[in-house]
């Protein structure tokens, strides 16, 4: 499995509050330290990052494709005609013009399935990142703010989960719960929240010592208010960057689990299972696996470039003067 590990590793590096490695990265300014920025400035910055802008556009197009999939598909993506089994794309000899990208191993229109597949892949990415973020950031801020037993319990639990290889963990959860979309999300989030927890906790620890928090305390604001309206806005940018980068790897994980025989497991087309079940046909019908693979590649690459751009833009230390 391939994962975007950089930001994760800042958090993983040590069981202590901040390992030397983290400190170093912190000093280097690579650690995600993000300031509140106004949004107008943000869009101007984005324009200066052509790859990130391109990534953003592609991601938006994909989301639109997923939303309007039922209107876009030329054929039924679920049922095929067995006679069209491994039909080549239309530009090949033997291809049929109405099946632009050809058909898969059960004679289903590949283009329609790729369009529909965007739904699963994008939902897997968005939902699992959203759930992981909410759980991770909530517990992370609370742990960093209150410290004490709450912090201790969650931090140890996080260490424990981190020591599990992610794919074995996801595989185990899928085996235990069975196939299905929501089980997949559950498997991904079960460990996914940890990175957000570590990030939010670490950020909170450093923000807590800052003057504005002290000032808020002095002015008599409650803990909850301080956490929500003072600390949260100051760490949310780094969470967004991490979230973007994680989304790509979670989408890839869906494909990896399909390869190991435990994907979404239903008739709903999902890119991961399409690439995985089509891989056997690579030598005589490359399109069945390669075209969904391209679709996935483009999406994940765009998400990563967007995430990378966000990191550059939102991290003030890396700006050129």
């Amino acid at each position: 499995m391939k994962v975007n590990e950089t930001s994760v590793h800042f958090a993983q590096a040590s069981t202590s509050d901040r390992s030397p490695l983290q400190q170093h990265l912190y000093l280097l300014g690579i650690k995600l330290r993000l300031q509140r920025q106004n949004m107008g400035n943000f869009f101007q910055q984005l324009k200066r990052h052509p790859t990130a802008l391109l990534g953003a556009i592609v991601v938006i197009l994909y989301i639109l494709m997923a939303i309007f999939a039922p209107l876009l598909v030329p054929h039924d993506p679920f049922t095929g005609i067995l006679g069209n089994r491994i039909l080549p794309p239309k530009w090949y000899e033997g291809g049929k013009p109405e099946y632009v990208l050809g058909c898969d191993e059960l004679g289903r229109d590949l283009l329609s399935r790729i369009i529909y597949g965007a739904r699963v892949s994008i939902s897997v990415g968005l939902i699992s990142v959203a759930v992981s973020t909410v759980i991770g950031v909530t517990t992370g801020i609370a742990a960093g703010y209150y410290r004490g037993w709450f912090d201790e319990i969650f931090s140890r639990f996080a260490d424990l989960l981190l020591a599990f290889p992610f794919l074995i963990f996801a595989l185990g959860v899928m085996v235990a719960t069975g196939p299905g979309f929501w089980n997949l999300i559950f498997a991904l989030c079960f460990k996914g929240w940890v990175e957000f927890f570590r990030l939010a906790r670490g950020e909170t620890l450093s923000e807590k010592t800052k003057e504005y928090v002290e000032a808020a305390k002095a002015s008599g604001q409650g803990h909850l208010t301080i956490m929500l309206s003072e600390i949260m806005p100051n760490i949310i940018h780094s969470v967004i960057v991490l979230g973007t980068l994680r989304m790509g790897s979670l989408i890839i994980t869906e494909a990896s689990l399909s390869f190991l025989g435990l994907g979404v497991g239903t008739r709903i087309p999902a890119w991961g299972s399409m690439i995985s079940s089509g891989r056997q046909y690579m030598m005589n019908a490359w399109w069945i696996s390669t075209l969904p693979g391209m679709a996935l590649l483009l999406l994940v690459l765009s998400i990563n470039l967007l995430g990378e751009g966000l990191r550059d833009i939102l991290d003030p230390r890396l700006k050129i003067d």
């Binding site: 899928m174 085996v175 235990a176 069975g178 196939p179 025989g261 497991g265 239903t266 008739r267």
Partner: peptide, 10 residues
Amino acid sequence: VSVRVWDWGV
């Protein structure tokens, strides 16, 4: 009818 794919052990 819908098809569901499982790990055999499950």
